[in-house]
Design a protein around this nucleic acid. Structure first.
Lengths: 220, 220
DNA sequence: TTTTTATTTTAGCCTTATCTAAAAAGAACA
DNA sequence: TGTTCTTTTTAGATAAGGCTAAAATAAAAA
């Protein structure tokens, strides 16, 4: 059985997240930027993760995650997202405050704890940001998600996630009244700048730039 | 503001626990045995904790905890015991399974998290083992606790804690029907071996050796 | 194809926290 | 008061995970 340290778990999670977004590999520099750790340190860690066979690592040619690595990364992500649900639903955290605390909680080692937490929360399928929670076997039931700016005029959908999940952006969304789970309808699409007007939950209209809309993911 | 590492927090908690039991100081060897860490490592850590002014440390003469240290230790203990309550009351852990998981959870750094957890649990005053939970200022409202074997014949009381909280001992107690919170009455005290017979919750009688009774703490 | 630039890796250093082996200090006893 | 035994500390090693500076490699430009 492969054992990972706290730091190794963080790297593997980062690599999974960076490679899941379509690309199949990622680079030392990307990981360095994402994790705010110097490239030299990243190189060294990639060597170690390669030796533990959770990634495929060819010097100078980037990183692919292995099946074994994917399983371990998903286990961490599952824990992270379950804790986020707990923080928001049970402890009244707002959805832009949970990431930091969940980053610590996700490393607590106890299969029973996670099983029980999952059960206690009613086996949630999505975290407060709308990201899917892998099941205990690492399976993710994901629905196709489309950036809001790509929805056609009069098209409807439900906000399920954001691409940029910075606290600032999440606060902005809360402020204007867009939140995960909101039902939306596209009322207008402005040709020349790509900005749009949407109706939220059949009661409130919001105007947003193309950039903002591009950061919001919906299912139809 | 004094910052402690994960390991330093563990040492300080151990020192607090070892010195709270009446004694005002503890030794390198005691800490070593308690924490299962070699004396040489303990010595080194005591030097560091001394420099951080959370303990008074004079080489070869044992350790006293300072006021500052006591405050920090109580903060960790508060977190540990709140998590224990959570695990037992919300996640159906049995009270002999929680220590290990709580030892990890107690190091999560987030004042908000602990405040909210406390509130969510209804501001409990005692953990599942009957030990008091310090409030956010480090105040402990503790009642005088007496070993069960010291209660006089026909005396009554309530089980609030155990001295030896090993999983084996806790399971044994559960099995015979003695649990934290149980109301007890001493029905008989056998002179020659110190064993006793008690009535639990006015319905069940239990016979126990002096050793077992000495490990059970009650309030009168 | 050569040169320049950008990326990545290696080498060497630091800190934390552990260990073992050896030395030092204190306690117990003759 | 020495001598022996126990406890504690120091010295030096190791492993993890970070850093900076320098070297190596790949990619881009001339």
């Amino acid at each position: 059985m492969i054992k990972l340290t706290y730091a190794e778990e963080n790297y593997l999670k980062a690599i999974y997240e960076l490679t899941e977004a379509g690309k199949r590999s990622t680079s030392t520099n990307d990981i360095s930027t994402w994790m705010k750790i110097k490239p030299a340190s990243v190189s060294d860690m990639l060597r170690k993760l390669g030796e533990k066979t959770v990634i495929d690592y060819r010097k100078y040619y980037g990183v692919h995650i292995t099946e074994e690595g994917k399983k371990l990364a998903l286990r961490t992500i599952r824990k992270h997202r379950l804790w986020e649900v707990f923080l928001v639903e049970k402890l009244r955290f707002s959805w832009d405050e949970v990431a930091e605390v969940a980053d610590e909680l996700e490393h607590v080692q106890s299969p029973t704890l996670i099983q029980r937490l999952d059960e206690y929360l009613g086996f949630p399928k999505f975290d407060p940001h709308g990201d899917p929670i892998p099941d205990e076997f690492g399976d993710v039931r994901s629905r196709p998600r489309v950036p809001l700016n790509e929805i056609e005029l009069d098209g409807t959908g439900q906000i399920v996630a954001v691409k940029d999940s910075s606290a600032a952006f999440l606060r902005y969304l809360d402020k204007v009244g867009a939140y995960i789970g909101a039902r939306i309808k596209v009322l207008e699409k402005v040709e020349f700048d790509g900005s749009i007007e949407i109706l939220v939950d059949n009661k409130k209209t919001i105007f947003m730039s193309k950039d903002v809309a591009g950061n919001i993911l919906v299912i139809q």
